[in-house]
Design a binder for these strands. Sequence first.
RNA 1: GCCCCUGUAGCUCAAUGGACAGAGCAGUGGCCUUCUAAGCCAUUGGUUGUGGGUUCGAUUCCUGCCAGGGGCGCCA
Length: 592
Amino acid sequence: MFETEQKIIEKKIQDYYRDNSLPELDEFKWVPVPFSGEWGISTSFFQTAALEARQRANIEQKLPPVPQRAQEIAAGLADYLGTPAGFSRVEAVKGYINLYFSTEVYSARVIDLVLERGQSFGCSAPNDKLVMVEFSQPNTHKAFHVAHLRSMIYGDVLCRLMECAGYGVVRANYYGDIGLHVIKWLWNYIKYHAGERPTEDATRWMGDMYAEATRRLEENPDLESEVRDIYARWDEGDPEVVALWQETRQWSLDGFQSMYDILDIHFDRVYSNSEAEKPGKLFVDELIENGIAEDERPEGPVIVRIDDQLGLEKEKYRVLVILRSDGTALYSTEDLALARIKFREYPLEKSFYVVDVRQSLHFQQVFKTLEIAGYPWATKCKHLPYELVNLPGNVVMASREGTVVLLEDLIRESTSRALELVEQKNPQLASEKKEEIARAVGIGAIKFPLLSRESKKVVTFDWEQALDFNGQAAPYIQYAHVRANSILSRSMQPIPAPLLPQHVLEPSEVELIDYLSRMSAEVVRASEEFKPLIITNLAYNTARVFNEFYMNCPVLKAEPHIRDFRLRLVAATKQVLANELDLLGISAPEIM
RNA sequence: GCCCCUGUAGCUCAAUGGACAGAGCAGUGGCCUUCUAAGCCAUUGGUUGUGGGUUCGAUUCCUGCCAGGGGCGCCA
């Protein structure tokens, strides 16, 4: 936001360096001054001092220790710079030079820019690069539970971040709509539930049916021949089996769709296991012909000895099995083909896979195999791993074990809890409005904890924590947004025209503006590092500082000029909070 | 056996190699005739698992060890 100012100062620093024959730096790292009531940018001179010490090590010349020398340089520069235009004060402290902004000019500039840009504030201009993010990847005919939530939410927010950072984004889903699990389900349905329709809670019903199927097969393994028979019929395209498969698959897909709708997640391109199967088998044939894959059938499967192909001594990529010995497809068969399909369909700069960490090796193997096969785009494929959501005691959620928290249960519990609170706080609202707020709060509360921690750390699902709406959580940020909205609507006037402040800004006003100004840079960083956490931190801090402002700085009862300035500041804060929440896929209610 | 990840306050988590390691929850004590108390203020709590190393400077980078989790030819 202050690149121009930074460049001007950098230029002057370079002049100073030259005049004093100091070693040149490749780049300056500007950081915000740790906040203590004033607002500014800062850079340190430790590196310069260290570099200088190294350069002169062979010369007989005594230099002071690095920290002391850094402080000397900072002090010399502070003298040299004086007080540049746009700044109120320059100081040299502990090896840093701190340049404090003239608040009246810059505070207005930040607020004006936010209000001018509105919903697009914080986002970069489109950069004409296209990326694909594949995420969610649910299996049909199975339960949809809380462990699946992380891919959905992480993937969705990565898309939002990259869109905001200027990329064109293809949001892709990849349904696991065929495989042994589906056939088991069909077998159980045909044999014991023929003709039945799903209950209202279709996804739960599908999951229960799957659990029933696995239970029956565990109790009586002899029945597995019946399952294999159905698989064979599906493979041959038996119209009856295929029709049933398509119909029942749709029940799952409809259930998934309603979940995506509730969570405000959408896709541009939906792939499925079944459509990648045949291309996958053809791909395997190509790899065999090219001498990349080894066909050990019928005794063994088709494999790629990746380390051998690369001539590696130590085992690293090991062996990838790409087709079963009976000729049926594996996940890897389909992944190879699907990667190629994606690049044929779209001119992608990058192809991301949001899949849990247990499949890291699998994706390394698939991408490396594609590279060996000579596809230049193979290096553009990137796996974005995330850790699991476990139950307390490090229990993995598994539908088969019955150790799951179903998504619909969590959402229902969370929204009904939120509804109780709305009833308490705002009993006068229409019930439709109450429900709308409860949805926003309940869903936000679910999403936030999954976004506010490192993706490579295990999340332990805990009911008490999931339903805690206080403190570091989405409702805190939403509430700040509501407070801002409340001030604006009570002001009974449109947002005042741009103006410069004529009062000495309170520390909480300065700090708030400081945080508003950081959004664009943080969005870029978050998208580059694939870290939604950066935005949850920013949003939380923005809300926290606004709450301080709210306590310390009356708006509606302030002197007219101060009131106008603060109304603009409140409007800008409301906009930024809404934009940040939107990036997190969380809605920002006006009342709660 | 090989590979990957994690270890920070009682609990859940932060911290572009840089200024005193910060929040929330829990605990304690305050603040609603003033813009919504889903809030604010104060306070308690740390040898960043551990031994070395690199660096002017390490929670961050390298390495040994300890503890936990995950992955490794026909599961997805």
